[in-house]
Design a protein around this nucleic acid. Structure first.
Length: 257
DNA sequence: ATGTCGGTGTCGCACCGA
């Protein structure tokens, strides 16, 4: 079962890109972020024609998340964190698919740092951690996958000094990620690439992609049960090179049946 | 310090968030 995450940066504006990638990559499950679309304008028909059933939680202008599946309808469990500090922001969807609990989300960016947006980021992440804490030892696979907006370590950024004042690389954000790993969660890409995982995001400007001036902020964390099933993971870098593409590349993991 | 996107409304450019 292949589960992917893709920050599309506008699901309507980049629908051709999304459909091309779905056709080529054929993931079983996809968590989308930054739909930038109200729920009523989510392109459900085009996605259904591509073979995917979907649940989504949109919002005008910003944010917005969805879960797509071609291995059975996603059974929606939650469409927000239980105590989101700002419930008006569409950032979290949780579904059961094929016996796997998939939490797909778009964590707050947090810039500028310090400031109220950064406080919201940390509060949101702590609520995520609290909410999933009881799931780690479950007798079923749990996958926390999406745009975490966290650069976990110095190895995950092209030039650490360029990002030292950014909320994505703030010590508190990195500490949070380390706490998740300390709770036992497995960073699937880091494990699969033996400590040298690829970047997942490159700015549009200054030819960042061409220079590989990227960062790693899209992650899949696995509970104990899912970690035992991990058999593959990757970043679909090529999709980042397509004309009119998102600034993120799709990230995927594969679990044994 | 700079740079580039999509979406939105104050609409045909300027803004916001990223």
């Amino acid at each position: 079962m292949r589960i992917a995450t893709y920050n599309v940066n506008g699901v309507n504006g980049r629908l051709p890109i999304l459909l091309r990638w779905l056709e080529e990559a054929q993931p079983d499950v996809v968590c989308l972020q930054e739909l930038k679309s109200p729920s009523e304008r989510f392109p459900a028909l085009a996605i259904a024609k591509a073979g995917y059933s979907a649940i989504w939680h949109g919002q005008a202008r910003w944010n917005g998340v969805a879960i797509l599946s071609k291995v059975g309808e996603p059974i929606e469990l939650r469409r927000a964190l239980p105590n989101d500090p700002d419930p008006s922001q569409s950032r979290y969807l949780e579904a059961a698919i094929n016996g796997v609990l998939v939490a797909g989300f778009y964590a707050p960016n947090g810039n500028p740092w310090p400031g109220p947006k950064f406080d919201y980021k940390l509060a949101w992440l702590e609520e995520l951690r609290r909410h999933v804490s009881s799931m780690f030892a479950a007798k079923a696979s749990v996958v926390l996958i999406g745009d975490w907006n966290i650069i976990p370590t110095e190895k995950d950024v092209y030039k650490p000094e360029r990002w030292k004042d950014d909320a994505l690389f703030a010590p508190q954000a990195r500490d949070f990620y380390a706490k998740m790993l300390g709770d036992g969660w497995t960073d699937a890409l880091d494990k699969q690439f033996k400590g040298k995982p690829p970047f997942t995001f490159w700015h549009y400007w200054r030819q960042s992609f061409e220079r590989d001036a990227g960062i790693r902020i899209d992650h899949a964390l696995l509970n104990r049960h899912a970690a035992k099933r991990l058999k593959g993971a990757g970043v679909d870098r090529e999709a980042r090179s397509w004309p009119g593409t998102s600034d993120h590349a799709p990230v995927w993991i594969e679990l044994k049946e």
